[in-house]
Nucleic acid binder design. Structure first.
Length: 475
RNA sequence: GGCCUCAUCGUCUAGCCUGGUCUAGGACACCAGAUUCUCAUUCUGGGAACUCGGGUUCAAAUCCCGAUGAGGCCGCCA
């Protein structure tokens, strides 16, 4: 903690953790770890209508699954109302806050009017002119109101660690609502107060917050709070190059997890979306990312998600994984698909081994391995290799059965089966005449692992049975 | 509409700050070939980009200006 750097991930529990969120969390995590700082989690649940406990749970669970461990928190803004109340008082004392009694209809009418005149919609500041005592009285009388912050109209400059200097004219913005009432602070206000209260040194968040920054800076100045450093990350875009949202489909981490994407792969993929090491290295573990990460190498332009690449990275990690680990991960998917009630590593490992280089995501495991657990279903036509006649295929299978039968149980392994069967297959002009129907007889599939490996796993008895039933199909 | 941000292959990007070594590099995807009973893996090869226009300079993807395009924000959401 030598550097005293503190970052935070501050999602609102109004939806699941998704690719965009997760990357913001990842960059905050990487930066704080790299600098030996603290990474904290804050749940921004000030919106009572939209916040849901299940989304908070989703956030925590999937963040943990990804391996993004936070050092402090989770803090919930809903549990920190007193802190905001106090800040609100300060604002009132300094004459920077006032009650606004304008109705939503009134404001909407004003907005429409401004838009139709080609002006920037902004609050007129009408209630700012109200006498404090009068406003207080109306408020006490129960007249509906909100609390606004009197924005100082001036140029606000700040330095963004990714984009350089940015300047806004706050005269172009209306007074913002900082709280619906004393118990209900709004985002710009609660986030500003909390970032200071939690000693956040680096605010690393999405680019969509750039225009909130000047408002927050003005709030900091009014409250006498320290200004953190800012780094605005480029947005993650959908296929239409707009900000990722529900209509782009399900990009929740939970969804990808269910599909059988590995946490390592998602982390690796997300890291490369908007950041690169400056070398040609593309495969990273979380710990290697911590070593190499730097905000200076973060991109400025938004990046479209490329699911193909995620799949490739996922398949890569699957190929790198130990057989045992991959088997362990596969078992739940086999159970889920109803192929096995219970499976031991010992039975599953030999099967998984044959498919390790073919699995792109764990979700595919059942459809790839199903024939190991049940008799294959396929049409007789599938047994036919190229334009060989069914009669010849049947003959090949008959001879194959005889040859296989001759192999002793104790010699039933890939090498021996291959050395014995291959010479026969070679004599056919094309090996396919024997190998194709053999493989189809055993797997029922157009594409699968090799016939000798599969036969080995199935065992002699089962192999012969499947070859026999293939011959029956041809009759 | 206003403000802000961004701009290299289809996509993610290197290079840009510190102009020449860039006939612009890598990866994914795609195409072709090798291996092969199939699929996958692996290997080899291929096509594919500096948004446009000015300027500065001996020299610009790189610096400056403008245009265009794209995105974000303009909530009693975050």
């Amino acid at each position: 903690m030598a550097t005293g750097i503190r970052t935070r991930f501050a999602p609102s529990p109004t939806g699941p953790l998704h690719m965009g969120n997760a990357r913001t969390a990842l960059f905050n995590y990487l930066f704080s770890r790299k600098e030996g700082g603290v990474f904290l989690l804050r749940i921004e649940d000030t919106d009572k209508e939209r916040s849901e406990k299940r989304w908070e749970e989703d956030l925590l669970e999937n963040l943990t699954w990804l391996g993004l461990a936070w050092d402090e928190g989770p803090f919930r803004q809903s549990e920190r109302v007193d802190i905001y109340k106090e800040a609100l008082q300060t604002l009132f004392q300094k004459g920077k806050a006032y009650y606004c009694f304008c109705t939503e209809d009134e404001l909407e009418a004003l907005r429409q009017d401004q838009i139709s005149r080609g002006e920037t919609p902004k609050y007129s500041g009408k209630c700012r002119a109200l006498k404090a005592e009068e406003a207080e009285q109306r408020q006490k009388n129960g007249e509906p109101s909100v609390i606004r912050f009197a924005l100082e109209p001036r140029k606000v400059k700040f330095h963004d660690l990714i984009r350089g200097n940015i300047e806004f004219d706050t005269g172009l913005m209306g007074d913002i609502v900082v709280a619906k009432d004393w118990e209900t602070p709004l985002y710009n206000f609660s986030a500003t107060v909390d970032d200071a209260a939690m000693d956040i040194t680096h605010v690393i968040r999405g680019e969509d917050h750039i225009s909130n920054t000047p408002k927050q800076i003005l709030l900091q100045e009014a409250l006498g709070l320290k200004r953190p450093l800012y780094a605005h990350l480029p947005l993650i875009l959908g296929e239409d190059r707009t900000k990722l949202s529900k209509r782009h489909g399900d990009f929740s981490i939970a969804h990808f997890r269910k599909q059988g994407y590995l946490a390592e792969a998602i982390i690796n993929f997300l890291a490369l979306l908007g950041w690169n090491p400056g070398t040609e290295k593309e495969i990273f573990s979380l710990s290697s990312l911590i070593k190499e990460f730097s905000l200076e190498r973060v991109q400025k332009g938004g990046a479209m998600l490329q699911l193909r690449k995620l799949e490739w990275i996922n398949a890569f990690f699957i190929r790198q994984m130990s057989l045992q680990k991959l088997s362990e991960l596969s078992i739940p998917y086999l159970k889920e698909a109803g192929l096995v009630a219970d499976a031991s590593l010992k039975t599953v490992e030999p099967m998984v081994r044959l498919y390790q280089e073919r699995i792109k995501k764990l979700f595919e495991v059942p459809e790839l391995l199903d024939f190991f657990f049940k008799k294959p279903e396929y049409s007789a036509d599938l047994l036919v290799w190229k334009d060989v006649s069914k009669k010849d295929i049947s003959k090949a299978l008959q001879e194959l059965a005889t040859v296989l039968q001759s192999i002793e149980e104790k010699d039933w392994n890939k090498e021996i089966i291959e050395t014995i069967v291959m010479p026969h297959a070679e004599r056919q002009g094309s090996r396919g005449v024997w190998l194709w129907p053999m493989r189809v007889a055993l797997t029922g599939k157009e594409a699968s692992a090799g016939p000798f490996e599969v036969a080995t796993v199935l065992g002699k008895k089962e192999t012969l049975e499947r070859v026999a039933s293939a011959r029956k199909k041809l009759r």
